[in-house]
Computed example of a mutant assay.
Amino acid sequence: MDTQDVETTAGPDLRHYFSVVRSYWRGILAILLAAVLLAFVWTLTQPKIYQASSSGLVTTGGADNVGLASAGDSLAKSKATSYSSIAGTRPVAVAVKEDLGLDTGENQLLNDVTVQVPSDTAEIRISAQSTDPAQAQEIANA
């Protein structure tokens, strides 16, 4: 095998790419500036979304001994999980909508609200998103 054959089948090298960039630098720069400008305009036209959070703690009645306290803690954690699944339902969204007098639909309200229970706790965290910060706070608290 001849060394000249190996060199011709190797393909373009780095100098070839630099020559292409040097030849078309105006077009490359124009496309880059157009993309940056479009991203800037798109960012400015997006509505601002505010998020508010609210949390609650599920408790059970006081216990006199350690065994009852442990059972109460387990019950509170179980109730917190149940309450979180109930909080994300349509009847709750309807009640929140009626209480606050909102114009949004129940589906939009369900999409804007997230309910979480941190693992192994009796805490419920509710987050609401809205274009109005006061409305996001009211929804999270409701």
Rank of each mutant, 00 (worst) to 15 (best):
M1R: 08
L68R: 13
A136H: 02
T81F: 06
D13Q: 09
M1D: 09
T89Q: 13
S85E: 15
A122W: 03
V92H: 08
T114A: 06
F18A: 08
A69G: 04
V58W: 06
A142R: 13
P118V: 07
A52Q: 08
L14Y: 12
A34V: 14
D103M: 06
L37Y: 03
G72Y: 02
G61F: 10
K77E: 13
V58R: 03
I126Y: 00
L44G: 15
L44S: 04
L110C: 06
L37F: 15
Y50I: 03
I124R: 05
I86M: 05
A87R: 01
S130Q: 00
K97V: 01
S78L: 06
T3I: 10
P47I: 04
L29V: 13
L44M: 10
R26I: 11
F18L: 11
E123M: 13
F18C: 07
M1L: 12
V96L: 01
V6W: 12
V41T: 10
V41N: 03
D13G: 14
F18K: 05
A142S: 15
S78W: 00
G56A: 14
L100Y: 06
V66H: 07
V66M: 10
D73T: 13
A87K: 01
K97R: 15
I139T: 09
E106V: 15
S127F: 00
